[in-house]
Design a protein around this nucleic acid. Structure first.
Lengths: 160, 160
DNA sequence: TCAGTTATGTTACAACATAACAAAAAAGGA
DNA sequence: TCCTTTTTTGTTATGTTGTAACATAACTGA
């Protein structure tokens, strides 16, 4: 599936992010914004260290990884980026500019080429899953799933 | 939910593991078996380093973490242990001795106390989820889910 | 302005994981 | 058995990921 950048320009997404932060009463500082811009321009999920390096190249200024982690935490709290805990990488939310209500994103992680695609799953299926889990007394933090496997490209390559 | 050790003795599980490896034509060496035994006796998911230390205490012999990783990789390939990628820990499969067909295990990871419980979800729900995902061209490796949240104990503690 | 809060930088280190190569042990055929 | 090959395990060093603790800078609002 397309990353956010295919759907809207980076600038318009950043503008959406600014509005979202203003509404939430939090600050999208210049650095946070710049880091988000860097991530938006990636086609792959990025680790914090990879992002620090990319940020340096993009903005001609180095940035401590410690700060990158903090900014990513902030951006994740505002749902502007998703943290993929299974592979310790981050990806910009593909729906920052969407005004319509959308489903919780589900991520498909290719264990071979490490590409990440974002799909939506029927709300009903997730609800059933969530209800089954919560019935055991567990309290889900989110319904974001991270599923592993092979993308079609790697699957076909492996088969040959 | 109960770990494997509550359902069957460690010895009988190890015997099942031996049979499974013999059938698969792979070697469950003494060290691999000993490591599995160590993990079976834990009530919590363990990191490779924690396991190396526990192994040393259990068997009076130290073992390089490098070897622990390799053995865990082997055991995971044989589906004798599960790797919880989200928290970098390992847990013995609760179903090694089960001959009956069972559902794919789903893991509930408490983000507070880091306990892990294993639940089963209706096959139908998982099938629906899996079919939706595979329809996008992605090929799931397994239907094992790792869900994050708070266990009931931590949830109630946080609420107070 | 200035005091309080939030954000970022710096340093040091803990925890997790693997690369590269060496040694030991097991398997299998002559 | 003995030798060769393959597999497993050990050793050393280093890479990768993440955070603690504290300092400095920037912003906010009275």
């Amino acid at each position: 599936m397309a990353r956010a950048s295919r759907r809207a320009t980076v600038d318009s997404i950043l503008a959406s992010a600014e509005r979202a932060c203003a509404t939430a009463g939090v600050r999208l500082t210049a650095k946070r914004r710049a880091l988000l811009a860097t991530l938006l321009q990636q086609s792959q999920a990025m680790s914090a260290y990879e992002l620090a390096e990319q940020y340096r190249q993009d903005h001609g200024e180095s940035i401590p990884t410690m700060s990158v982690y903090r900014m990513l935490d902030f951006l994740a709290e505002q749902n502007l980026v998703h943290k993929l805990g299974a592979i310790n990488k981050y990806i910009a939310c593909a729906h920052i500019s969407c005004s319509h209500r959308h489903e919780t994103p589900q991520f498909l992680i290719c264990d071979d080429c490490h590409s990440v695609s974002e799909v939506e799953v029927e709300a009903e299926t997730l609800d059933t899953l969530g209800q089954g889990v919560e019935a055991t007394g567990f309290h889900l933090r989110s319904r974001q799933l991270e599923l592993h496997g092979l993308c079609d490209h790697c699957y076909k390559r492996a088969a040959s």
